[in-house]
Design a protein around this nucleic acid. Sequence first.
DNA 1: ACGCAAGGTAGACGACTGTCTACATCCAAG
DNA 2: CTTGGATGTAGACAGTCGTCTACCTTGCGT
Lengths: 241, 241
Amino acid sequence: MKKDSSKGEGRKEDLRPANGRERLMYAAMQLAATTRSLASLGLREVARTAGLNPNTFYRHFSSFDDLGLAVIDQLVGVLRAGLRERRRVPAAKGLTFDDTSNPTVAMERARLVVRESVGLVLDFVTDHREAYIVGIRELHGTSPILRKALCKVMDDIADDMAEDVLGALRLPLLPAEEVREISGLVIRQMSFFSLEYLEHPEQREQIREQAERFILWLFWGALAARLPGLTPLAPTKLAET
Amino acid sequence: MKKDSSKGEGRKEDLRPANGRERLMYAAMQLAATTRSLASLGLREVARTAGLNPNTFYRHFSSFDDLGLAVIDQLVGVLRAGLRERRRVPAAKGLTFDDTSNPTVAMERARLVVRESVGLVLDFVTDHREAYIVGIRELHGTSPILRKALCKVMDDIADDMAEDVLGALRLPLLPAEEVREISGLVIRQMSFFSLEYLEHPEQREQIREQAERFILWLFWGALAARLPGLTPLAPTKLAET
DNA sequence: ACGCAAGGTAGACGACTGTCTACATCCAAG
DNA sequence: CTTGGATGTAGACAGTCGTCTACCTTGCGT
């Protein structure tokens, strides 16, 4: 009589899963996004918000670290798969173009790609607000295992971005390793931009423009360091990396 | 008989302070840097590692948030004052120079300033490893109060950096707001670089070079977006911000 | 019909926690 | 010396935590 929904009387929201395991993971994610860190969650607390008996926990997870890893795995899957799938949209919209041998024209087209990509990322993080916030939180958290896993995700996403940039823009002036390095810098900075974007909805347009500006500056600067005509300095030290 | 040092028999390390209040704050900082988040620390746990009775806590702090704020305040003071003081060294070493009206020469001198500043920051974070790690952790943590306080610190440090850049380099091509924006980007990215620098001592030289490259790219890109001779594009949208 | 395993529940245990009141120091002011 | 305040200690309380054993329900294969 006390439990509201144990059987299947009138389940209205199908968003909350019915598998006890997934209900526990959902509750843990929800708590981690709002209240505290993932590692500091309590077994009973998670079971309570999941509407389950504390002992049911042991039916699905051997220890509490198991749940943490399961949540992170699901989170990683959502983040990477989601961003991967969205990347196909601009790639299919014909933004690919040939080498123009004029870097400034390439940069102007790059501006369009950047605008599209920034909007894509920011829309994605608003769609998956909880997962993203938890991910960033645990990226700087206390558990080395979670940190390493999330760090790898960021690297993978940066690899994806570098691949996109190399495939779509075909900037022959920037070597692949440099594009990869710039992608890593952009992804890391985007994590900051995304958090501000989520937390300050009134400044969203401003943050969006700032992110676009940042990316263009970075590519522009790397190009300027490469073009001998634009700078009489010999950036030899920069090249050998 | 059970307590090791309550009176003053043979205190060897003067690093650990004697004021009960500071001993508690020191213990909290130490625990937060190694074990868990600041907000998830326990009263008894902190008192135990400080070698004090749990109830002594109430003599110095009304609640646990009090201690958190006190630790953050001290941490903020250490971070900002330390960086501020170190900034004087290069400023006094005669790195200031007049406007050269040649942006490439200015950039070459800027490279020296960047190298000096990056080394300064990285040396500072290795000197204050615990405080820095806790600060970054809580910057992305769960407590809105701590997050806001630490965010303000980052902004203040960015202001200091912008002031330095404007005062030392005198780049007339970049307006003050743009220098401020770039400073914010650099400071945020340096927080990532610093963490990697602390956690991967075997890659320190590489991380240092990457940080220097990043900063130069950013300034270079902003300059390229400003110089009409370097780019035929009219960066009007970039200018009005 | 029977057994049996997966999933969920109930209750209890020891350990730990925050908070409280009461007691023991010290050291300086009067 | 006495007084009082600042500081540290001891013990106890109610509550929560993780973990364990035992029991109940459901569904499925034979």
